[in-house]
Design a protein around this nucleic acid. Structure first.
Lengths: 330, 330
DNA sequence: TCGGTTAGAGAAAACGTTTTCTCTTGTTGA
DNA sequence: TCAACAAGAGAAAACGTTTTCTCTAACCGA
């Protein structure tokens, strides 16, 4: 079922068919309509390989990630796909772990297939993928992973997210705020901690540990053992830590949100919705980030110029029950 | 950088180059080697679009899923990708939610791009995707989702997994076993329950609820309120329920694994490893399932015939601390 | 010396499109 | 009545490969 078959069925030449379907050239409106009708009838769909060969656009892009578990990649992917499906673009997903050789294989395979662009994404915004994407013959956009100098990079605004969370805790009347978060080696951790202190006070305590529930437990143990004034608002570096904190508080008979309000980070729904009580948390809008990355790589592919540099997208606070009521409901 | 440039650089014709690189035709070994060397030097890579146009093989397959969260899709995808990258095949990932229109758009886009095959996957083995893949001009393999009659379908052997878990509980000396699981409407739930009873006894109790931690809590509440003999081994329908069960037991002062052994299902690592104690659970080997699906769709694409029907892959028990020691260590 | 074979290499067709160029026919204006 | 032009449609080239076919020259045996 090629354009030749369609041409034969319509009694015209292939060039006429092509022009009819693409609204190109000049021809009787009646002819155009008839060809389109017949095409629809016999279900003709042009071969994208042939089309791509000629136009050197494959309507295909690659999404490269080292986030095997997909907690960050999947929302990004969903956004990319959603933005591009309207343009007829399909997405190759390549999970390359942290293996440079595997990365090169996948990148080469994508280039062979003439992808119109590549989006790099990962699990950490201050580390880059184990593969060099500079100087590729196709546009590259970095989303939620570190880009090369002069590249287009999108990321979540960690400072903004932390401000949202901390401001919220203050607005609902919490005064003794602490921040329990991940390793200080993460840039995002430092940015969040800095924003936290900007709002909570420069002497507000920040505790660094690992990204796990157990660290949440341990942090609460330390805080409650320490004596002195105990916090009434805890902003956690991710939802897993928040979960550990909440469990540890409950185990101590501390009511959440009655005695202490807890806010998480990531809005990892399957976790945030299952904590008891459900977790108020910061959403990094990764889907929107993916959407924008998709549109940008497309624009670059069309030859449009996109201002290079780091673009930080705002976060969003998702309010559930772990904080208590809204400020104006108190 | 095309084959013509390479031909010019080597001082031969394009046909000679093609034959040299593909080890086809007959030519002086010296010529062949020289062409290969020059190709490597200037970094020539053939355009897959042109190659695909001629061979009508695109070295591309599509993975269709309605599992937005990706808990099941990601391991399958990893397996598919791992199996196919060696063959130079790239994978289009299409998340279609449960939207038939979106499904059709993605399938059409993939067919336009001449995919060599499609793998359908989902979040539930007894429901099919909201899109009809029968009668497509490319081979289709169903993995972890319901296939059409006469199709090739791969799935995990739920009965086997349940047997593994239950047998293990018996072998470590547990005698009063119960099964706390998901809605009876799931075929997998019924198969697991049936296998559980085959091992634990036909009167062993099975409790159906929803797939959430809260149901785990509630189930324990019911069991402990009921009076009479309490269970000393609980086999849960997934890791979230198991997590709820463990938390509820601890809240009641019941020791895990001291008093009660708990086994989960799914080996959802990020959950299973973070429960306290870490969860012994059944792994459905979804990556292996993906690997096999990838190889099968490739074989079908080569014209090989694959026995149609439902293929059930064995599960695997991942032993962590929630059950206590191995039988022979007691 | 000559017909036949073979090694080695190039020419050309093919894949399914799009696009530019050319051709025919009919119309318009002077 | 005729040149100029436009509308409508087809022919052909192009994209980058692979594959089949053809050509040339060397070699062999009779």
């Amino acid at each position: 079922m090629t354009i030749h078959d369609l041409a034969r069925a319509a009694g015209v030449s292939v060039s006429t068919v092509s022009k009819a379907l693409n609204d190109n050239g000049r021809m009787a409106a009646e002819t155009r309509a008839r060809i389109k009708r017949i095409a629809a009838e016999i279900g003709f769909r042009p071969n994208a390989l042939a089309r791509g060969l000629l136009s050197s656009r494959s309507f295909t892009i690659g999404l490269l990630t080292n986030d095997t578990y997909g907690r960050f990649t999947l929302p990004v992917m969903a956004g990319v796909s959603e933005a591009l499906v309207d343009h007829g673009v399909s997405v190759f997903l390549c999970a390359i772990e942290d293996d440079p050789a595997l990365g090169k294989i996948h990148v080469d395979a994508m280039l062979d297939k003439q992808v119109d662009g590549i989006i790099a994404t990962g699990k950490r915004t201050d580390r880059s993928l184990p593969v060099d994407l500079a100087g590729l013959p196709v546009p590259v956009v970095y989303a939620f992973t570190a880009g090369t100098p002069g590249s287009v990079t999108l990321t979540a605004d960690d400072g903004h997210g932390a401000s949202l969370a901390t401001t919220w805790l203050k607005e609902i009347g919490r005064r003794r705020l602490v921040h329990v978060t991940g390793p200080e080696s993460f840039v995002s951790v430092r940015e969040r901690a800095s924003a936290f202190r900007d709002v909570a006070g420069s002497d507000a305590p920040v505790f660094h540990g690992i990204w796990s529930e157990s660290w949440g437990h341990e942090a609460v143990a330390r805080l409650w053992k320490a004596g002195g004034e105990r916090p009434d608002g805890i902003f956690c570096g991710n939802d897993q830590i928040a979960r550990g904190v909440i469990d540890a508080l409950r185990a101590r008979g501390v009511r959440v949100p009655g005695d202490v309000s807890v806010v998480g980070f990531d809005n990892w729904e399957i976790m945030a919705e299952q904590t008891r009580p459900p977790l108020t948390t910061v959403d990094m809008n990764l889907k929107e980030l993916g959407r924008q990355a998709g549109l940008m790589v497309l624009a670059l592919g069309r030859g449009e110029t996109v201002e290079p540099g780091l673009r930080k997208l705002p976060c969003r606070l998702v309010v559930r029950q772990s904080c208590g009521g809204r400020p104006n409901e108190e």
